[in-house]
Design a protein around this nucleic acid. Structure first.
Lengths: 150, 150
DNA sequence: TTTGCAAATGCAACCTGGTTGCGAAAGAGA
DNA sequence: TCTCTTTCGCAACCAGGTTGCATTTGCAAA
């Protein structure tokens, strides 16, 4: 995976060490199909036989956020999740039943809204969060089937 | 305030008691200009000489959410905030410096997006969150002034 | 290859927001 | 006023996340 190498060499160039933990965390986040919480991440590292203390996980995540390798996402369940910085700005569709996360891209853009906020109430938008919560295809089908059976 | 009376009589009609605590919490949330956390609320009640145990605050908030009097809002700082259910669906502009919260209404609606999600990936949206984070007018001015002084 | 030092790590203890079990207090209808 | 159920307060607990400090480890220079 080429993206891993780019991240590693960037970190190295800026004088940071490439420890076993750091490499494992970046790789895990890169290969994950959805954002991971600190807890999820710790479990996933353990699957790959890398045992890491939770303090280290939190510190490493903070480090990677600080150096713009990953960023935080909040789904409102009290857990902070992390994902490798995407090229564009994405939003998410989160299934409230199975927690599956899909990335979505909004075409008629929120950028226009951010500009409007500035004009109307002089609010300078730095960033925003937009998450959709509902039922994914599979869960919705299961739900419909259950209802039909009654 | 007439809205208070409507809420109280609705609760009463449904067989719920109107305790000192319940009345104080509803009133505090109604008169607050921004969503309150459990902690904020407890402090505000104390200002009005109503001392309430934190467990009671959390239980009362859960009760009011369950009965559709208030709802939760997440600003991603690890605290759940509450506000009296608004007539329409609002979003927020949250100042990252002073934490001032403004309500905003989006005209070109997200409802169209929710329909599109359903069509494209069969995702049934139940609800969504959209919050803008940035600098309010006052904080932005202060920031500009500080920069000009340098 | 070895050495030295800052960066990274592990551990234990801690903090904060929120929850649970249970006995005591208090609305409100009879 | 009595009675019964809802509500309340307390203490103990839980989960996610943080901090201080001593130890280990990359890695660059010698």
């Amino acid at each position: 995976m080429i993206k891993t190498e780019i991240i590693f060499s960037n970190l190295k160039r800026n004088g940071h060490r490439l420890t076993k933990t750091r490499k494992a965390i970046v790789s895990a986040l890169l290969t994950s199909e959805c954002p991971l919480s600190a807890f999820d991440l710790k479990a996933r590292l353990l699957d790959g036989d890398v045992e890491v203390n939770k303090t280290t996980v939190y510190r490493e995540l903070a480090f990677l956020v600080k150096h713009n390798v990953i960023h935080e996402i909040q789904f409102g369940d009290g857990k902070t999740r992390y994902r490798v910085c995407p090229d564009g700005h994405h939003h998410h569709a989160i299934c409230v039943k199975c927690s599956k996360v899909d990335e979505i891209i909004m075409e008629n853009d929120l950028a226009a809204h951010e500009k409007k906020l500035d004009k109307l109430i002089n609010f300078k938008v730095l960033h925003h969060t937009l998450e959709f919560f509902g039922l994914c295809k599979a869960c919705n089908n299961a739900e419909l089937k259950k209802r039909a059976a009654r």
